[in-house]
Design a protein around this nucleic acid. Structure first.
Length: 622
DNA sequence: AGCACGCCGACT
DNA sequence: GTCGGCGTGCTC
């Protein structure tokens, strides 16, 4: 009797069923009994023997049809192993419900005629050599990985448009992934505008019936291009020949719900397993990707220098004023042509006690309190709480509090004082702004790589904020912030960065756009301090509802330590509270993943404890 | 004792 | 995800 291992898209282990047919049903969607109801699942493997520990095996109720290739299933298995989660949780990512609906004969509705106000993407010239290399890889249809260093995001989108046009008459399918839904929509419409009905779109804001329509068309029609956000990476395809990611370093590529996969790593593995080339694009490639290119895992293509970039000036942040005289002069000279001033924070400033030197902190979480001058209150951005502005230092009782740092509110106040001309427009920068004259003010959080050059000059105040963040990626993020700002500045313009520490080696690389110098500097530091890419980090979050005894918690800690033999950091978070976490670190990456997979099985056997695992965590706190 | 409710584990 | 088992606690 043939047996079949079936994965049901639930947090459930793989179950075995039997069927009279002795075919290989691997990759077939099936309907199977589970307890006293029927569920849909996917056959992941045929087996000759039934599993020993199970006495009764139920029969497959119905075989619906083939949907997944063996390679695709192998990719899903790798995801389940690498991200340490049930295969069912991965199958859930693969548009399984839509595929079942399609197999059951349901049809979707195309999106309404809501013609989005998205502008179509203008196609600019790209490096012919780069395009030829990618198309060659597409034709050969074997695994290769490219790290394409692009001059800006428009270049990436134009390249995608060029590729779409070229492949629309060729054999094979391409998958374009972009971080944001708006970008997906505009690229999709631009592609449809050029190649017609040979593309589908997939992103999380689409209605179920729209997603069903896309999947249906993918199954029935001759679709050449799939454009989507990160979850489109799990689209089952017939003939995948290229995967391309725009802005590979974007933090939006890290999924925030379980399974917390990273799109870049997953895309590389999908390409490797399904034997198709992968192109990672970015203007500021991640340190991890650069490392892979130095190890020969990725082929590095440098198109960054095909376009000129604005000059970067590093100036010392004065103690007594907000702007360096030279920055102020620059700002006054260029205000007609458009100036943008960037601060790391909204609000007015932080508050510091002149006596004890302590910055006012949040009582609850210990984050710095942001002072809003006009409305006179303080705010903790970390835990979203507000307080009255304190009159005395809560630490020492000191009566004198002074401002530290410069938020947008303070910038506005300062500029109103310094630039007295009545014709100067002062405004908050918005991404849709058409008008650029005058002085715009914004926070760094609003800067995106996908913006376009408009301003003549920029001043970045309080830049040290980015260098002091307690995150091992602080420097690469800081570098990346400046490049996002670059995109807003005309090529003949300039960017001034104010820092208390202009001698910092970091700025030497930044001002000359010396990426390689920066990466090597950063990698040296990561190697010494044992951070990725030299180690793998895995976070284990434990939630307990009952008051577990200290001995029990120690038992868990020892179990993890013993089973994984890795460096164990933690517990982080309060032990008295119900939620706390450990971070495991090891240079033997694969061994660590294997050990944690094994360890989790033991932990799940313990009662009253919920475990969440996060591989390559985005955040090392709590 | 009898029943309602909620948590937790199993599901092939 | 969903069902049922079982423990807790309240009521007749």
């Amino acid at each position: 009797m043939p047996y079949y291992d079936v994965s049901i898209p639930l947090k459930l282990k793989i179950l075995t069923y039997y069927d009279e047919r002795d075919e290989d049903l691997t990759g077939y969607a099936v309907k199977v009994p589970l307890k006293n109801r029927l569920c849909y699942g996917i056959v992941i493997e045929k087996r000759k023997e039934k599993p020993e520990e199970v006495e009764s095996i139920k029969k497959i109720e119905k075989v619906l049809g083939w949907i997944y290739s063996k390679n695709f299933i192998d990719f899903l298995r790798w995801m389940s192993f690498y991200y340490i989660c049930e295969l069912g949780s991965i199958v859930r990512l693969t548009f399984f419900d839509e595929l079942i609906a399609f197999l059951e004969g349901k049809t979707g509705k195309p999106r309404g005629s809501k013609h989005s106000k998205n502008r179509l993407i203008e196609k600019i010239a790209v490096n012919e050599q780069t395009l030829a290399t990618i198309l060659e890889a597409f034709k050969i249809r074997d695994y290769r990985a490219f790290l394409l260093h692009t001059p800006n995001v428009s270049y990436e989108k134009s390249l995608f448009l060029h590729i779409a046009e070229m492949v629309s008459f060729m054999e094979g399918q391409v998958l374009f992934i972009l971080p944001e839904i708006r970008e997906v929509e505009s690229l999709y419409h631009s592609i449809v505008d050029r190649i017609g009905d040979k593309a589908v779109m997939l992103h999380s804001e689409m209605r179920t019936s729209e997603k069903l329509k896309s999947i249906e068309r993918l199954m029935k029609e001759n679709i050449k291009v799939i454009v989507g956000t990160r979850f489109a990476l799990f689209t089952p395809t017939k003939n995948l020949s290229l995967i391309a990611l725009s802005q590979e370093s974007s933090w939006l590529y890290k999924a925030e719900e379980a399974p917390r996969y990273h799109t870049r790593e997953s895309a590389i593995m999908r390409g490797f397993i399904e034997k198709c080339p992968v192109v990672l694009c970015d203007t500021m490639p991640s340190v991890s990707s650069f490392w892979n290119s130095t190890k020969g895992k990725f082929e590095y293509i440098d198109d960054f220098n095909r376009y000129p970039h604005p000059e970067i000036l590093i100036l010392k942040q004065p103690l007594s004023s907000i702007f360096h005289p030279e920055a102020l002069l620059n700002l006054k000279l260029n205000k007609k042509e458009g100036v943008i001033i960037v601060s790391p924070r909204t609000g007015f400033s932080l508050l510091r006690c002149s006596e004890c030197g302590e910055v006012i902190k949040c009582q609850g979480c210990g984050g710095s309190m942001l002072f809003h001058k006009e409305k006179n209150f303080t705010e903790c951005k970390r835990c979203n709480s507000t307080e009255k502005t304190p009159e005395f230092c809560p630490t020492c009782g000191g009566a004198e509090l002074h401002y530290v740092g410069t938020g947008t509110e303070r910038l506005l106040e300062e500029l109103k004082k310094t630039i007295s001309d009545s014709d100067v427009i002062l405004k908050d920068y918005s991404i849709d702004d058409e008008q650029i004259e005058g002085i715009s003010i914004t926070t760094s959080a609003k800067l995106k790589k996908s913006s376009v050059h408009i301003f003549k000059t920029a001043v970045f105040v309080d830049f040290d904020f980015f260098l002091s963040l307690p995150d091992y990626r602080a420097l690469e993020n800081a570098f990346s912030k400046v490049l996002s700002l670059c995109h807003l500045i005309r090529n003949d313009g300039n960017i001034t960065i104010q820092t208390r520490n202009p001698e910092n080696e970091f700025f030497r690389y930044l001002k000359s756009y010396d990426f390689k110098g920066f990466y090597h500097y950063e990698l040296k530091h990561r190697r010494e301090t044992l951070f990725p890419p030299f180690v793998r980090l895995i976070k284990i979050v434990l939630k307990t509802n009952k008051k577990n005894t200290t001995e029990k918690l120690d038992e868990i800690k020892n179990l993890i330590k013993e089973k994984t033999k890795a460096d164990l950091i933690g517990p982080l978070g309060n032990r008295d509270e119900s939620k706390f976490s450990y971070i495991l670190r090891s240079q033997n990456k694969k061994e660590l993943t294997e050990a944690v997979n094994n360890c989790i099985k033991w932990l799940r056997k313990m009662r009253g404890i919920e475990i969440v695992v996060e591989v390559d965590p985005a955040n090392l706190k709590q």
